[in-house]
Design a protein around this nucleic acid. Structure first.
Lengths: 144, 144
DNA sequence: ATATGTGCAAAAAGTTTGCACCTAC
DNA sequence: GTAGGTGCAAACTTTTTGCACATAT
């Protein structure tokens, strides 16, 4: 399944005139297999672990390229190195447990609508947004 | 007015056991006079322009200290150096014009309520949040 | 008097880049 | 064949830190 996705992406890149090198193919596979939100160093480590020879500089360059192609999204949480995620899912925002560091995803059409309304009232339209909730588990809280 | 505010802050800091040095006093004044969202280098430049002898290292250390005292807030917009703002106003979020770089402030009780609801549904409570709308002026838009 | 703060210069951390070589198309 | 990609090492940007000296309380 992730292999299939990786192949699809290779085609899309070629169609866009972006060369699919050994390094890029390897990173596409690593990204397709990653359900979490790894940073550049972590992606490099995973590629190395998979036996791909990819330099860290190329990881950075590839991430920039894939972002420009809309294949991945860059996440910049408070003061940490940038993290990345596949862009194939529907849009969502993030909730970060400040105690464990765990990153969860959520969506809210109602919030998105309100954001658009607020921008419109001020004469603007939204290009993109960023919303992060830094949270703590409630004592006696509802089980996940 | 800003001078008065700076004096108040000096008192609060002393009360909290934080020494009010010449450098800190100078930075408090620069911050009190700044209605925008300057980064450390800009604050350093403004302090220098005001004739205060303050090193950049001290600017960084002071910003960290003032943040810990709740006097200022740190803003981290997409990939730029951190910016700072006085924390005396009510809570608000930011809207950034992607074409001009202009930073505007806004509030929405409705969004804040929805955020709390979403966190609660997942068994969490919000410690703090970050919401930024990256926007573009609408062609034929409503005047500001 | 002394715990704290400061300046300087060096280091850290994350990311980007110049250049010679390599490779997908 | 050639435009575009890669590796390496060096540079860059922002921020932090060790240490000797200075100063607010």
């Amino acid at each position: 399944m992730t292999e299939k996705r990786a192949k699809q992406l290779e085609e899309a890149l070629r169609a866009a005139g972006v060369r699919v090198t050994r390094q890029r193919a390897a990173l596409l596979r690593v990204l397709a297999e990653s359900a979490d939100h790894p940073d550049a160093a972590e992606l490099h480590a995973r590629a190395e672990a998979a036996g791909a020879g990819v330099s860290l500089a190329t990881v950075y360059r590839t991430l920039t390229t894939l972002q420009a192609q809309g294949v991945i999204e860059k996440l910049e949480f408070q003061g940490e190195p940038a993290r990345w995620e596949a862009a194939d899912q529907q849009h969502h925002d993030h909730m970060i447990d400040v105690e464990t560091g765990e990153v969860m995803e959520f969506t809210s059409d109602r919030i998105e609508r309100l954001q658009a309304e607020i921008a419109a009232e001020m004469g603007y339209e939204i290009v993109h947004h960023r919303m992060e909730l830094y949270v703590r588990r409630r004592r006696g809280g509802v089980p996940g």
